[in-house]
């Protein structure tokens, strides 16, 4: 039991159902406002797909959730913890461990084997013994379908396999929230399916997911809510059925016309 497993950890006593609660989130890069005030609340177990053209701020938004991108205005509350400059180191560690993040470019550590990639954080952050961490990693690799690659280096794997390892690596911290930042955009078409299959399987579990993607099929199949971003603003949010069949905003219609 480390201090990480404390009983009074925030969020457990909170009555709020919202595991992610953001209000008026703003991010600027100099004069350019990438996010102009975003209000999104996410319930536990909810699956959200964020759509939008390039540069609309969707990646920036999910990066503010675990503070890879500090926000310059508004509030971000994760599991009862307000994430900002004043967040304590312990709370920040807790938030980051609670949030699994999957990158577009996988970002596996090239000098570590697949097994070491997955066990690194559980061992270093949670202090789980090596044997236990490896058993867990093996289970996760079986879940994503590549246990035989455990002792290879990332460069020996295909893009789809690397992304599946990245998902397993994020899951190894046993997160409540999974964030996916265009997980299939860097993949060859034939590898997209194997990654999406893993994500669909994950969606059936009790994990809160926010997925930034261009995969409409995935959005229709698993999303509880679809959100459209444009120029740093939230244009429309709705259930997938309503979103695709009956869009309310002109901008949404235009977007759907362009991609469908």
């Amino acid at each position: 039991m480390s201090e990480y497993d404390r009983d009074d950890k925030p969020g457990t006593d909170g009555d709020s159902e919202m595991i992610i609660d953001t209000k008026g989130v703003k991010v600027n890069f100099g004069d350019f406002w990438a996010l102009k005030g975003i209000d999104i609340s996410v319930k536990k177990g909810e699956i959200i797909v964020i759509l939008g053209p390039s540069g609309s701020g969707k990646s920036t938004y999910i990066r503010t959730l675990n503070r890879l991108q500090p926000h310059s205005g508004g509030t971000v509350v994760i599991d009862g913890i307000t994430v900002d400059d004043d967040t304590t180191v312990a709370d920040m560690k807790y938030v980051r461990a609670e949030i699994g993040f999957v990158f577009q470019q996988f970002n596996l550590f090239p000098h570590l084997t697949i097994m070491e990639n997955i066990t690194l954080a559980p061992m270093k952050v949670k202090g789980i013994p090596k044997r236990e961490a490896e058993d867990q990693a093996m289970a996760l690799l079986e879940k994503v379908g590549i246990p035989e690659q455990a002792y290879k280096y990332p460069s020996g794997l295909s893009g789809g396999q690397q992304q599946r390892v990245a998902i397993a690596r994020a899951l190894a911290m046993d997160p409540k929230i999974m964030l996916f930042d265009e997980p299939t955009s860097a993949l060859d078409p034939e590898m997209i399916k194997e990654v999406l299959d893993v994500m669909i399987e994950l969606a059936e579990e009790d994990v809160t997911m926010i997925v930034v993607t261009h995969e409409m099929g995935f959005a229709m199949a698993v999303a509880d809510r679809v959100i459209l971003f444009d120029e740093g603003e939230l244009v429309e949010q709705n259930t997938p059925a309503e979103f695709f069949d009956n869009p309310q905003h002109k901008r949404t219609k235009l977007f759907l016309e362009q991609i469908l």
């Binding site: 180191v89 980051r96 970002n107 954080a121 952050v125």
Partner: peptide
């Protein structure tokens, strides 16, 4: 060192020091 490496380590919850020693330095 690719900034994505650092971000991946931070997103996993590693401290800045752990990130430097286990990810940035070996690379």
């Amino acid at each position: 060192v690719d900034s994505g490496q650092k971000e991946a380590a931070l997103a996993l919850g590693l401290s800045p020091f752990q990130t430097k020693m286990t990810v940035e330095l070996p690379n």
